[in-house]
Amino acid sequence: MILTSANLVFIVTLTIMPFLLIGVIKKIKACFQNRVGPPVFQSLYNLVKLFNKDEILSKDCSWIFRSGPLISFSGMLLLCLSVPWLPLQPPVPGCDIFLFVYVLALIRFFSIISSIDAGSPFSSFAASREATLSFLAEPAFVLALVALGISAHSSDLALIFGQPIENNRIPLSVWFFSGLALFLSGIVELSRMPIDDPSTHLELTMVHEAMVIENSGPNLALVEWSYALKLLLFFGLIAQCFVYSLSKIIALPPLLLPLSVLVVMLALGCLTAMIESFSVKLSWGKNPDFIAYAVSMSLLSSLAAFAMNGGS
């Protein structure tokens, strides 16, 4: 890893952007409720506070419970450093679509078994919910990335994303539908409304929040931090999809590309906050119907990828 200016931009945004995104979402939600809302960087302050707290452990839990958050945090950090979520080459090169998907699956596996290990009924059924939801949403997510890969003739994420506009051969429709599919499956993966309400206090309806209900102190801090990194990673990829499809219509100056991706990420945060303020959490039985839309978008994207590939 060489400290180039691109890498520096990567690392600086990596430290600030996740907390900014969470803060912006919370602030906008508060605005819709006529509240002032927490300071934008409150989640960062919370992190510091949590790292300074003691940890309470159930007497029944084993090393798996304690290592789960550590594994998910290190996995997320690895992905954030090797996936081009800004349209720049990442500091650690050579991340493949499948490596990306499998590292995410590994993280999910460990967070699921660590929450089952805690032995609380809430975290156990939440783990089962998480497994069900990600099982349903993963095809959409993978297919959307594969469609991009087909159009780019490569499975290397660095050759799909993070390329200068003139090198980019992926057609508009593939970018757009993949972006939509990633956004819809991102809602599921990031446990946002209408699948999961991150601000509820009702344990019985939770997915992500109930999974980490037994974590406390530094352990919880790692969970929160890796969630923030996951948000950044997903929003970065989605934002790039939309920025690249926009660049097919309007000519964007290449220098503005990283900036416009950041702006689109914030806009996605606003959109998420709007959805969260005005939509209703779906009944558990209706979740597959919602995920079906994500699958449809990725199917359309791969159809477009095949059709355009055959044509050219």
Binding site: F32, Q33, E276, S279
Partner: peptide, 14 residues
């Protein structure tokens, strides 16, 4: 609030 309509719930409590 239980359905997740934060904005409407806030209006009701006002």
């Amino acid at each position: 609030a239980d359905l997740g309509c934060g904005a409407i719930s806030a209006a009701f409590s006002r």
